[in-house]
């Protein structure tokens, strides 16, 4: 899908609309583009692969891009797990997949030990591949997601805020404040952007 937007006034480039998984092309730790095609070629048939990295390192974003690429040639199911009780629904969805489909699961650890075993068994029975995101290695690693200040700077440049509103120092400071969590840093920059364009008071957060 291609999007064209025509509007007026300053638009906060760090709104979730622009930073949610799938909206930013995947980048490596230094901010260089990642070859999603090369990653996709490493997904084995009937296998299990994990995208590993800490919170806010781009796992979900990379998974979304990978799923979109894989979907050109195969049936792909993408699912985000938030709690263990999502397991039955997830199992039902995998059970409905045709043979040789690919299940991309965001939040592998949230399935719980039993849920992970069940998902692996059902996927194996269906002959489906599993590509998951996890914070720690849990099997063959497809990619390790890491961040650097350069990566955040590159992402911010792609989002394209006015340099006069958000400067390089702001980006560096946001990265440091959130200890490398790019997602939190971007949301921090959202607040800073709003504050700068409105010249506002500190606000009352509840």
């Amino acid at each position: 899908m291609t999007v064209q937007w025509i509007g007026r006034g300053a638009r906060n480039p760090f709104a979730t609309r622009f930073i949610r998984p799938g909206m930013i092309p995947p980048l490596d730790a230094e901010g260089h583009p990642v070859s999603v095609a090369a990653l996709a070629a490493r997904v084995p048939h009937g296998g299990f692969m994990a995208l590993v990295g800490p919170h806010g390192s781009g796992k979900s974003n990379l998974l979304a891009a990978l799923a979109a690429h894989l979907a050109q040639d195969a049936v792909v199911m993408q699912s985000r797990v938030r709690r263990a009780r999502d397991v039955p629904g997830l199992l039902a969805r995998i059970a409905r997949l045709p043979v040789a489909a690919i299940a991309c699961i965001d939040g592998w650890e949230r399935l719980g030990a039993l849920g992970r075993v069940a998902v692996r068994v059902v996927a194996r029975c269906r002959g489906c591949d599993l590509v998951v995101t996890a914070h720690r290695p849990c099997g063959p690693v497809l990619a390790r997601c890491m961040t650097t200040p350069s990566l955040l700077a590159r992402v911010v440049a792609m989002l394209g805020p006015d340099d006069a509103v958000i400067g390089h120092d702001d980006v560096t400071a946001a990265y440091a404040r959130h200890a490398g969590n790019v997602r939190e840093a971007l949301l921090d920059l959202y607040d800073l952007f709003e504050q700068r364009i409105r010249g506002s008071a500190a606000g009352v957060r509840t």
Binding site: M1, T2, V3, Q4, W5, I6, G7, R8, E194, Q195, R198, S200, A201, A202, G203, V204
Partner: peptide, 16 residues
Amino acid sequence: VSEHVFAVGDLPPARP
């Protein structure tokens, strides 16, 4: 898809 923004009402921007 092409998106053309317009306004309904004329509320001033909110401030924290």
